[in-house]
């Protein structure tokens, strides 16, 4: 083969690789970003079909006051559904999470009693909530408390320390002398609830150096699980789930106290 021919071959190989990478990227974008949204919107009837029904209805009813009444009634039914969920939780003997995005606070409660409340310095919610709020099944969706089934955190939930029984009084005395001081820890956690709700709690304080490393480890653990889930969906030719993310920013102490107080399969009620 002549040198020019070899160079052309190399160029072709490069172009093919580039084209393949581009094609795979487009496919991945469709699979990871567009497909979950479309599937979720279809499954939850959040697409145009229902909108046209409402439009036709409002044209029939015509009056603007009727539209306002429909909106008010919707808001009241929404509130009623949320209260139903909260009342269900007050009957349980376990601590649950209460997120109120309207008054921007998060609290842990048990039997209707607020144990700790924290004002949110800022928060962010997925725009899908806006669509979900207007869906026809929103009342049933809200009336049942959300239940956590996975969580990740940059700090340990239960800081157990193992201690072997001393052989004699001398060893016992030595053990007593090294009482551990509480270590400063940074607070970041994510709790994944059913119905694909992901609650992220981030501390407002700047993390320490050790905290940054722990956060990196915690983020890695989360994204590792997410990538695993994604690949699993890809293998089974299913759409990856669409997460309804609630990103909360609050003080470190509040995050640690709340996260540690909540049981692994804690429940949650939400106002948005």
């Amino acid at each position: 083969m002549k040198p020019e021919a070899h160079n052309t071959g190399k160029k072709h190989a490069g172009r093919i690789t580039l084209l393949s990478v581009l094609m795979v990227t487009v496919l991945l974008i469709s699979f990871i970003i567009i497909l979950p949204v479309v599937v979720y919107m279809r499954e939850n009837k959040l697409l145009e079909k229902q909108k046209s029904q409402i439009d036709s209805l409002t044209t029939v009813s015509a009056a603007e006051s009727m539209r306002d009444a429909a909106e008010t009634l919707h808001a009241l039914r929404f509130e009623d559904a949320r209260l139903k969920a909260q009342i269900q939780l007050t009957r349980l003997d376990s601590i649950y999470l209460f997120i109120n995005l309207v008054d921007s606070f998060v609290a842990i409660q048990i039997r209707g009693v607020t144990l700790r409340e924290s004002k949110l310095s800022e928060f962010y919610v997925s725009s899908i909530f806006e669509h979900k709020r207007q869906s026809a099944d929103i009342y049933e969706w809200m009336a049942t408390p959300f239940v956590a089934h996975h969580s990740w955190s940059s700090f340990v939930k239960h800081p157990f320390k193992l201690k072997n029984a001393p052989k004699d009084t001398l060893e016992a005395l030595q053990m007593k002398q090294d009482i551990m001081q509480p270590e400063p820890i940074d607070g970041y956690c994510r709790i994944l609830f059913d119905r694909s709700i992901l609650v992220k709690m981030n501390q407002i304080e700047k993390p320490s150096f050790d905290g940054r490393l722990l956060k990196l480890k915690y983020d890695f653990a989360f994204f590792y699980d997410m990538t695993k889930e994604l690949l699993n969906a890809l293998i089974h030719l299913e759409s990856p789930p669409l997460r309804l993310t609630i990103d909360l920013h609050l003080p470190q102490n509040d995050i640690i106290s709340m996260y540690r107080a909540l049981p692994y399969n804690c429940s949650m009620t939400l106002v948005f």
């Binding site: 974008i29 970003i33 949204v37 919107m41 409402i54 919707h74 997925s126 806006e130 994204f223 997460r243």
Partner: peptide, 22 residues
């Protein structure tokens, strides 16, 4: 995977929000 949520949000933001259920 890392930035999926942000991009999905951008995509969702392009879709119209419908009014209260009929």
């Amino acid at each position: 995977t890392v930035i999926a949520d942000r991009f999905r949000d951008l995509f969702i933001a392009l879709l119209p929000v419908k009014s209260a259920p009929a």
